[in-house]
Design a protein around this nucleic acid. Structure first.
Length: 250
DNA sequence: GCGACAG
DNA sequence: ATCTTGTCGC
């Protein structure tokens, strides 16, 4: 059971009250797969790739994640703001909504973003860098979740995924800190980053306004102890809790 | 045509 | 993502 007790204690120490507002689907949100792909192609040119982005270990970093209850057609998103230097929780927010899009590989953003945007909007703190559970430019049309979120919010964003998706990679060295290219054919779309000795790497890609080198540095700074970054671990725990509370009440 | 496929 | 027990290891 992990370190649930430790995490729960830390969460309880947070003074911020999670918001549980219904997440409306943004106006004009696509309904069909063809529309969704057209939206990606239209927004793709707005991705900014010539900024280094925030310095790892400085300022605020926000993790976002989503949990689903298909039976009840419920979705819960969480946004957890951390102090990048200490990795302490600064603020948390959640948002509930209806599932607005099915899971389709390559179109994940349309399923996750409405609730995520609502949770981000409920924060009082500026989010700083946003860390997504998934991919950014490592995407069939180079416009994954993290790139999409970055363009819609203007915030620097990056993606850290648990699986290589359709891409391939050379196994990085066994030591924490080792990296290897994540490639789509000959193009480097991201990197496999080893955050723990001898444990499967995470897959990092640029979203918006962050360089790949710096995105990888953020991944390592955010995961000092576990394979996954604290941002996703915190957001994952919070959205699951919010979903459970929503499902068990009215 | 068939299988794979972030979450 | 989600369904799920015990179990090996630090």
């Amino acid at each position: 059971m992990d370190h649930a007790a430790t995490d729960a204690a830390t969460d309880a120490a947070t003074d911020t009250v999670p918001a549980a507002v219904p997440a409306p689907v943004p106006a004009g949100w696509p309904t069909t797969e063809a529309e969704a792909r057209a939206v990606q192609d239209r927004l793709r040119p707005q991705v900014v790739l010539d900024e280094d982005g925030p310095v790892p270990g400085e300022g605020l970093v926000t993790g976002v994640d989503v949990a689903y209850d298909d039976e009840r057609d419920l979705v819960a998103a969480a946004a957890v703001v951390l102090d990048a230097r200490t990795l302490e929780v600064v603020e948390r927010a959640t948002a509930l909504g209806r599932i607005s899009f099915p899971y389709v590989p390559g179109l994940l953003a349309f399923r996750e973003l409405p609730a995520v945007l609502a949770a981000l909007g409920a924060l009082k703190s500026p989010p700083g860098l946003v860390v997504c559970d998934g991919y950014g430019l490592a995407h069939p049309r180079r416009f994954g979740l993290a790139a999409h979120l970055g363009v819609l919010t203007g915030l620097p964003a990056l993606g850290i995924a648990k699986n290589p998706f359709t891409f391939s990679y050379e196994e990085p060295g066994a030591a924490r800190g080792a990296v290897a290219a994540l490639v789509d054919g000959t193009e480097e779309v991201g990197r496999a980053v080893r955050t723990r000795d001898g444990v499967k790497p995470v897959f990092v890609s640029v979203g918006h306004r962050v360089s790949l080198d710096r995105a990888c540095a953020h991944a390592l700074h955010l995961a000092p102890r576990y394979r996954l970054p604290e941002t996703t671990r915190r957001a994952d725990a919070l959205c699951r809790r919010a979903l459970a509370e929503a499902s068990s009440s009215s």
